[in-house]
């Protein structure tokens, strides 16, 4: 098993080096490469309908890469949860002898709904202002994180979170395949109407994809955290 992983990693790295090398030598002139940025800036409003060009690039121009990133995040979540099992004895033990104090407990509970609301705002307005699925999802997950840190009894609906995570991943793929069989005939083609520039319902499927990304990021992070804390409390009980 370990050997297989090693071979896969080395193979992947070699593939990466070869691709980068070929890219370096095959590019005929630098100016051609440099023109990509200005071209994107010029065509982005018409093509994607998103006011935030960075978001348009992340979700539309390189939507495929974003899908890959979500997959990488899933793999790392898996890795960390395996790590959590390994550190069951020790590392997180001290943390659970203490509940964080009343002010932090009540304070994090009071602020939690509002922080999640800000996260949702950031996700939904990702195509209009700085932000998007990744930072929004992280905000939501970290707010839950603080509440988990301050309570010994909080039960995380693991099943629900796993289902959400899976559905988000499948949803991303489904939207991609809808694009593939649409008239545009390309994976992740932006086939939804562009809407009025600058309003919430604009930029076609970009807000939808960002919502999916946010759900995936948030549920994966919450999953990691709850597994880590479960490992911590297991080690505490073992010590007692």
């Amino acid at each position: 098993m370990r050997k297989l992983i090693g071979i896969l990693l080395i193979g992947g790295f070699a593939f990466y080096l070869i691709t980068v090398g070929m890219g370096l030598f095959s590019a005929e002139s630098r100016s051609e490469l440099d023109s990509v940025g200005s071209e994107i800036l010029a065509t982005s409003p018409d093509l994607s309908g998103a006011a935030n060009t960075v978001t348009a690039v992340v979700v539309q121009y390189r939507g495929f890469d974003t899908l890959g990133e979500v997959t990488v995040l899933f793999a790392s979540a898996l890795g960390v949860s395996m790590l959590a099992m390994a550190i069951r004895d020790g590392l997180l033990q001290d943390l659970f002898d203490d509940d964080g104090g009343f002010v932090l407990q009540a304070g994090s509970l009071a602020l939690l709904p509002f922080i999640v609301l800000v996260g949702i705002y950031i996700v939904l307005h990702g195509h209009l202002s700085p932000g998007g699925g990744f930072p929004g999802g992280v905000i939501i997950a970290t707010a839950v994180f603080v509440v988990i840190l301050t309570s010994k009894t909080l039960s995380i609906p693991r099943g629900l979170i796993n289902v959400l995570e899976t559905l988000a991943g499948l949803g991303f793929l489904a939207i991609g395949f809808v694009g593939l069989y649409s008239p545009a005939q390309s994976f992740l083609a932006n086939i939804l109407p562009k809407g009025e520039f600058g309003s919430l319902l604009s930029a076609g499927f970009i807000p939808v994809i960002y919502a999916i990304v946010a759900i995936k990021v948030a549920s994966e992070l919450i999953n990691i955290i709850s597994k880590l804390t479960a490992a911590g409390s297991a080690s505490r009980e073992a010590a007692e």
């Binding site: 964080g100 932090l104 970290t142």
Partner: peptide
Amino acid sequence: VIGFIGVVTIARFLKGG
């Protein structure tokens, strides 16, 4: 928001360590 969450988290871990 992130600053608040970060500081609170580190404060909790500092207590532990």
